[in-house]
């Protein structure tokens, strides 16, 4: 089975290796450029000293405005890639056998078809793990200076680093295998598997992920820079940045201030600017309430997300093996 699986999937395996090579070729030089700028702007020392005042804020902003956009563009066009890779490889596994009629050749040799399928799933799955883990390693290295500043919860980091890329691809692969079994044709199976992948993947990113753990809350002295939220926000608090879910000005009792007052204050702070704005806010007795997922939860979140997608993949593959077993002998 090892030889047969290799023979049937070697073109895909080589395409995967080519993708790794191409990615490395593009991103290794670019990663060096980021590292040079990182040193040049003095981002490292700023991070060591915490936010370190306005000089550091502007250094980090300059650095991030130069690279964050590009690094996140990478994500934008890479989001569908695990889905496509997984769906194509998965759908071809059974779809191609049905299309060419070769299932009648494959399953009348002396390997029972359920073993044929499980062996193929394991071997191709292993190939997917190797290829996606290598891609994750390249992306992780490339992004690490940016991650130092904005944390690893930004989608550009979280979706490409660690375990998530592998989990996504295996899920799409499993959907492709099942779709190939049901449709008996490769192309509709790819389309269905890819649609199913996106239908799960996007709600997880935009809705479910921030709910993996109850977020932490902190009350901070107010600052004029408040208001920038989201996983890509430049941090205004010391330490490795987490994932800021919301930032609100609250009064002494911890209640949020009304929208009208907030508007007023916001205009005032913009007029004052800098340290004057901060002391103005402090004078009002306000605090900044930050709701966030701390940076050290990165691996917990990675494991939860990978377990989610791997679990779904296992269910779909289990259903596929069972259906193939029931469909015939």
């Amino acid at each position: 089975m090892i030889w047969l699986t290799w023979r049937q999937h070697r073109a895909q395996a080589l395409a995967g290796l080519a993708l790794i090579g191409l990615t490395a070729l593009v991103f290794l030089p670019y990663g060096h450029a980021i590292r040079d700028a990182y040193a040049q702007h003095g981002v490292g020392p700023c991070l060591v000293r915490g936010t370190g005042g306005d000089g550091c804020q502007s250094a980090m902003s300059t650095f991030m405005s130069r690279f964050n956009g590009i690094a996140n563009h990478l994500l934008t066009w890479f989001t569908p890639v695990p889905g496509l890779i997984g769906a194509i490889v998965g759908a071809s596994l059974l779809g191609r056998e049905y299309e060419h009629g070769t299932w009648r050749l494959a399953w009348t040799q002396a390997v029972p078809r359920t073993r044929w399928l499980t062996d193929k799933i394991l071997l191709v799955g292993l190939g997917i793990v190797v290829i996606t883990a290598s891609l994750s390693a390249v992306f992780g290295w490339f992004r690490s200076p940016i991650d130092d500043v904005s944390g690893r919860f930004s989608p550009g980091a979280f979706d490409l680093e660690g375990l998530s890329l592998t989990g996504y691809t295996l899920f799409a692969f499993a959907a492709g295998v099942l779709a190939g079994l049901l449709f008996r044709h490769t192309v509709p199976a790819i389309a269905t598997a890819f649609a199913a992948f996106m239908a799960v993947r996007l709600p997880v990113e935009f809705w479910l992920r921030q709910r993996y753990q109850t977020p932490a809350t902190r009350l901070l002295p107010p600052t004029g820079h408040w208001g920038s939220v989201g996983p890509m926000a430049v941090p205004i608090t010391p330490g490795t940045p987490g994932w800021t879910l919301s930032e609100n000005l609250v009064d002494k009792t911890g209640h949020p201030i009304s929208a009208a007052v907030q508007d007023q204050i916001s205009r005032r702070t913009q007029a004052l600017g800098g340290p004057a704005a901060d002391s103005y806010l402090r004078g009002l007795g306000l605090h900044l309430k930050v709701v966030y997922q701390p940076a050290n939860r990165f691996w917990t979140f990675q494991i939860v997300e990978a377990a989610l997608f791997l679990g779904l993949a296992a269910v779909l593959l289990g259903v596929s093996v069972r259906l193939l077993h029931r469909r015939s002998a």
Binding site: M1, I2, W3, L4, R7, A106, Q109, A110, V111
Partner: peptide, 10 residues
């Protein structure tokens, strides 16, 4: 032929 060899008992 190689496929046949790897998938069969005899």
């Amino acid at each position: 032929l190689r496929m046949g060899r790897s998938l069969n008992l005899r």
